[in-house]
Simulated assay, not measured.
Amino acid sequence: MKTIADVLREEGIEQGIEQGEQKGIAKTLLAFLSRKIEHLPEETKDKLRQLDGQKLETIVNDFHQIETVEDLNKYL
């Protein structure tokens, strides 16, 4: 039988993994966007780093439609 501590520990581990995945996606996405959009403002980069997994996934799926900072800002 799991204790409350075990359940909380497992939830914490799951949250940590999810946050790590989101950071990895954001980092990779920023690398690709920086190559695609010549002058990506730091403010835009910061906003992207703070997005949740669902919004990051949307940007990944629509990546081919993003050509300018203005296009990207529609997702932020």
Rank of each mutant, 00 (worst) to 15 (best):
I13T: 08
K2M: 12
I4T: 13
Q15C: 05
Q22G: 00
M1V: 13
D71P: 03
R9F: 07
H64E: 15
Q50V: 02
L48Q: 03
L40Y: 06
K74H: 12
R49I: 00
L56M: 06
K45Q: 08
E38R: 13
L33A: 09
I17C: 10
R9E: 10
T58K: 14
R49G: 00
P41K: 06
Q22S: 10
A5E: 15
L48G: 00
G24R: 11
F63S: 05
E10P: 08
T44G: 03
K27S: 11
D71R: 01
G16T: 04
L40A: 04
H39D: 10
P41L: 05
I4A: 12
I13E: 12
L51Q: 07
I66C: 04
V69M: 08
N73M: 10
E67T: 12
I66E: 01
Y75A: 02
G16H: 02
D62T: 07
I66M: 07
E42D: 06
V60I: 15
L51C: 02
L56P: 03
R9Q: 09
I25E: 14
K23G: 02
H39W: 05
P41Y: 03
G24S: 04
T58G: 05
A26Q: 08
S34C: 01
E70G: 01
G53C: 06
I13L: 10
E70D: 11
Q19I: 02
I13H: 05
Q50K: 14
R35L: 11
K27N: 07
E21T: 12
E14A: 15
E42K: 14
D6P: 00
I25P: 03
K45I: 06
L33H: 03
I4N: 11
E10T: 04
E11D: 12
I59R: 09
E10Y: 05
D71F: 01
E11K: 15
K2P: 15
E14Q: 15
L29A: 02
A31T: 15
K27Q: 08
T58I: 12
G20W: 00
L29Q: 06
L29S: 03
E70P: 03
L48W: 06
I17T: 13
L51K: 06
Q15W: 04
K23I: 08
T28F: 14
A5N: 11
E21M: 11
D71M: 02
K74T: 11
R9G: 02
G16M: 05
R49A: 00
E18R: 14
D62M: 09
K55V: 07
D52W: 06
N73P: 00
V60R: 13
R35C: 10
E10F: 01
Q54E: 11
L8R: 11
E21P: 00
V69I: 09
K55E: 10
L8D: 13
T44A: 06
K47W: 00
I37H: 03
G53K: 12
T58D: 10
A26Y: 08
R49K: 12
T44K: 02
I25H: 01
L76N: 07
E38C: 04
H64F: 08
I37E: 01
N73Y: 00
E38H: 07
F63R: 10
T58V: 10
Q65N: 15
A5Q: 10
E14Y: 01
L29C: 01
M1F: 13
D52N: 14
E67M: 06
T58R: 14
A26R: 03
E57P: 07
L48T: 04
K2C: 05
Q19H: 08
E43D: 09
K27Y: 05
L8E: 09
R35Q: 12
F32S: 09
D62V: 03
G53S: 14
